[in-house]
Design a protein around this nucleic acid. Structure first.
Length: 501
RNA sequence: CGGGAUGUAGCGCAGUCCGGUUAGCGCGCCACGUUCGGGACGUGGAGGCCGAAGGUUCGAAUCCUUUCAUCCCGACCA
């Protein structure tokens, strides 16, 4: 996989903003300069460039495999949803109404002044909403698919784009249009649906940890943060390097809300009619943002080997064409061996930039392993091996290089996970008083484990006072008697607070 | 939608307060040469209605009015 000239277009990539100076600026710079994405002509919309999209494709492939292992299949539903569908589930419409783009006309015409205008005669009888999520159109469809318990379960996923008219956008983290997958399942029983909700949040946890190398906390969302129309929302929460939390994936137990709204009933084993039980779950291109903010440093991206579009880059060091040919021939042989082991290798023999420039460029792009070979190595049978995660270099024998690199890629994957995990542990603080809560939040950030009285009012008050929200009520948090840091009322367990993206 | 800022070459900027030849600089781009083990250098070259529209003036990137766009900080959110 290689991207031709576009890959190299931006050479003014040096001088990334420093992470500590302005994290937002650094992030934005990095996304643009590493060639992942940029803003487009349309307000709030993002162009995902080939390098960024290649990461997304790798994510898609891995997730798809995991979905198939859990019995799911892909399908596709329309982009446009009749407005009336949208209003059938009261909480759902309330949650999304404020950010919907709406199609009102189906034709343009000449305005007589050389321009073009919306043809007022072509007004749609019923406006169409560009999907912000697909529960409604899907449940309208499922109605026709389900008559009996024998039709269940339905385990369908779709890869799609959705649109939410956000006030303020950030590349990958919040754009008006974004790519995601959304699973929508239909079940015979409450228990089965709940089990599915847990199963899928665990798929996401596994994906985050094993592929993104990002540790996450799995837990329930509080009532305030729950998906509009869900009875329960499970989420994975990740911690970014600036101490803010990022919701990286959600899995919703929808109860019978959508089945009732769209009148989807089935004849049960006992012959009685009942409404279908539902779940939905999704992750988006936001995961790329998570990847960037979890691992990168001031030299650029640090991509986990499993998701890096290029895992190894080889750079010849030479004077003159003859040396280039010799070094390249040797690199080709090594590359072939690595490719045979399933490693994605690129040899960068560009003659118009120097090797030092290439080193910097591949660091910016987060390529996990770099191999450089010059005449000295050629003579000695060695190669210089550099790893992106630690920025360390060593000269190693060409003999056995493939084994070494394959093992190293695994080691890098494990190492960046370990690094992110220890960062998160450091940044997770148990707090027992309001003073401590406020102080830790301001001075340190990160996850705060605190007691909460369980009321939405208290959560709201804490949010107003500090901008921190309950990220989740962790599944594995032990029961423990305490008092709410805000209200002083009794509490049975700690929840995770943080400021969030 | 509130508060703040910015629009000058592909990118980053200076010039604007205090109007005055042909609008500059760095990077990038093109050509040739020298280079090449951590972001090379020399010489030559191309590239601009100074965001847009009005106005003031002998004269506007610069002053005034309007407008559009973008970014940052809030509210909203995967």
């Amino acid at each position: 996989m290689w991207f031709g000239k576009a890959f190299f277009m931006a050479k003014e990539l040096k001088d990334l903003t420093k992470k500590e100076d302005n994290y937002s600026q650094w992030y934005n710079d990095l996304v643009v300069k590493a060639g992942l994405a940029e803003y487009s002509a349309v307000r709030g919309c993002m162009v995902i460039k080939p390098y960024g999209y290649a990461i997304w494709e790798k994510m898609q492939r891995a997730l798809d495999d995991m979905f198939k292992e859990t019995g799911h299949v892909n399908a596709y539903f329309p982009l446009l949803i009749p407005k009336s569908f949208f209003s059938r589930e009261a909480k759902h419409v309330e949650g999304f109404a404020k950010e919907c783009a709406v199609v009102t006309h189906y034709r343009l015409k000449n305005d007589g002044q050389g321009g073009i205008e919306v043809d007022p005669d072509a007004r749609l009888e019923e406006e169409l909403v560009i999907r912000p999520t697909s529960e409604t159109i899907i449940w309208n469809t499922y109605k026709g698919w389900i008559q009996s318990y024998r039709d269940l379960p339905i385990l369908v996923n779709q890869w799609a784009n959705v649109m939410r008219w956000e006030m303020r956008t950030r590349l990958f983290l919040r754009t008006a249009e974004f790519l995601w997958q959304e699973g929508h399942t239909a079940h015979e029983t409450r228990e089965e649906a709940i089990e599915e909700t847990y199963r899928m949040v665990n798929v996401y946890r596994k994906f985050a940890e094993e592929w993104l190398a990002v540790p996450v906390i799995v837990g329930h969302k509080s009532e305030n943060e729950r998906f509009a129309g869900a009875e329960d929302t499970l989420a994975i929460e990740a911690l970014m390097q600036d101490g803010k939390a990022l919701q990286a994936g959600t899995s919703h137990f929808l109860g019978q809300n959508f089945a009732q709204a769209f009148d989807v009933q089935f004849a049960g084993r006992d012959g009685k009619l009942d409404y279908v039980w539902a779940t939905s779950w999704g992750v988006s291109t936001r995961l790329i943002g998570a990847l960037i903010m979890a691992h990168s440093d001031d030299n650029g991206l640090v991509l986990p080997p499993k998701l890096a579009p290029q895992q190894v880059v080889m750079i010849p060091i030479y004077k003159g064409e003859e040396e280039l040919a010799q070094v390249t021939a040797r690199l080709e042989a090594l590359a072939a061996e690595l490719r045979g082991r399933g490693v994605n290798v690129k040899i960068d023999a560009r003659d118009n930039v120097r090797s030092g420039f290439k080193f910097a460029e591949y660091e910016l792009r987060g390529v996990p392993v770099r191999l450089a070979m010059g005449p000295r190595d050629l003579a000695a049978g060695t190669v210089e091996l550099a790893r992106r995660d630690t920025l360390s270099k060593e000269t190693v024998p060409q003999e056995g290089l493939a084994d070494r690199v394959v093992a190293l890629l695994d080691e890098i994957q494990a190492n960046i996970y370990a690094k992110a995990l220890s960062f998160r542990d450091e940044m997770t603080t148990r707090v027992d008083s309001w003073d401590e809560f406020v102080r830790v939040l301001d001075e340190k950030g990160g996850f705060l484990l605190a007691h909460w009285d369980g009321t939405p009012e208290t959560e709201e008050a804490i949010k107003d006072a500090t901008k921190a929200t309950i990220r989740c009520i962790p599944l594995d948090s032990p029961e423990e008697d305490g008092v709410c840091v805000y209200s002083g009322k009794p509490s049975k367990r700690r929840v995770v607070f943080a400021r969030a993206y």
